[in-house]
Design a protein around this nucleic acid. Structure first.
Lengths: 183, 183
DNA sequence: GTCTATAATTTGATAGAC
DNA sequence: GTCTATCAAATTATAGAC
């Protein structure tokens, strides 16, 4: 699939992998070129600058992430929460990878301006999605402020969980962490 | 205080600031030299390589962090938890800074080997401290596995909270997040 | 679209004078 | 301990041929 994809896609795939494992500041056009099988100059034809590439990758990631989640009301509350957690878990299980925007959030002070904007959008959209899920839980009648608190808590827990898991036993630690949330 | 400190300390102070705001891969000896008021070559006298500097900074950070926490049984359960949270909050309030080891945890796949080891130790020691605090809560008689789950949860929540807060409204978001934990 | 060639800058690091 | 001088390598980026 990735081998038949067009060059722009291959470049973005490679860049996404590097950002999620090593960070935006720890990969070069040389790395990307080697993976894709082209020369570094060719990358500039598809993405004028590294910042452009980074922003495009973050935008695509956010789109795909929310696309995979689907509308907040498609499944039951419990199913949606567990699907959301699974999205982060699969992120990790595919090679010790961070959430792309979690990594960018950590590096935010060293990112070019256009990337800062795009990575903020990921968090805003995720929180809005979670808000709606929590508000849909008809059992308790919670306020929008209470929903937002729950959303923030789960998002932070998962982003932080990826960091801590990578520094310790990996998936075992992450599973131990999320088991409480699924119970 | 920092102006009368010896050069090694000044170098570590500057490095710690850069790592916590921009990350290990986003600062150079040039940055450090400019801050301290020396030439880049002089840094190598105190720290042979960048990896040595990074490891020294992470070691000092871990020591100081645990030193500030003190023994796990010095205060009541509620006080210790709120002191632990406050340690992360002050981390943020001093200029949008990440927990140093939270940043290194995110960047871990791009770090030199000696830094990986040191940054793991931070998490191990933090979890041990939290375990003891949770076990000390005499109300409920929890197992060591249950304590570890709670420790992991709080640690991940705070590390992730710093990332999310930096990407959104900053301290307001972080305070909203921890208000649930202090209640 | 991809290449070669090259530029301009930055990087971590070393040797040796003071 | 700090400096000057210098290094080799890497970085992002551009110009222009194919």
């Amino acid at each position: 699939m990735s081998s038949t994809a067009d060059t722009s896609t291959k470049i973005m795939d490679a860049a996404e992998g590097y950002i999620r494992t090593k960070g935006y500041n720890a990969f070069s056009f040389r790395d990307i070129a080697a993976d894709v099988g082209i020369k570094t100059a060719s990358i500039h034809y598809h993405f004028p600058s590294k910042a452009d590439l980074g922003a495009a990758v973050a935008e695509r990631y956010t789109e795909q992430f929310l696309e995979a989640l689907g509308p907040p009301d498609r499944y039951t509350f419990e199913e949606q929460i567990s699907r959301y957690i699974a999205a982060f878990r699969s992120s990790y299980s595919s090679g010790d990878q961070m959430c792309l925007c979690g990594m960018l959030g950590a590096e935010i002070s060293s990112l070019p301006e256009n990337m800062i904007v795009v990575s903020k959008v990921f968090f805003v959209k995720n929180l809005l999605w979670l808000d709606q899920v929590y508000l849909s839980k008809s059992d308790d009648n919670i306020s929008i402020e209470q929903a937002r608190q729950k959303s923030l808590r789960l998002l932070a827990l998962l982003e932080g969980g990826l960091i801590v898991a990578r520094s310790l036993d990996g998936m075992a630690t992450f599973d131990q962490l999320i088991s409480q949330e699924l119970a």
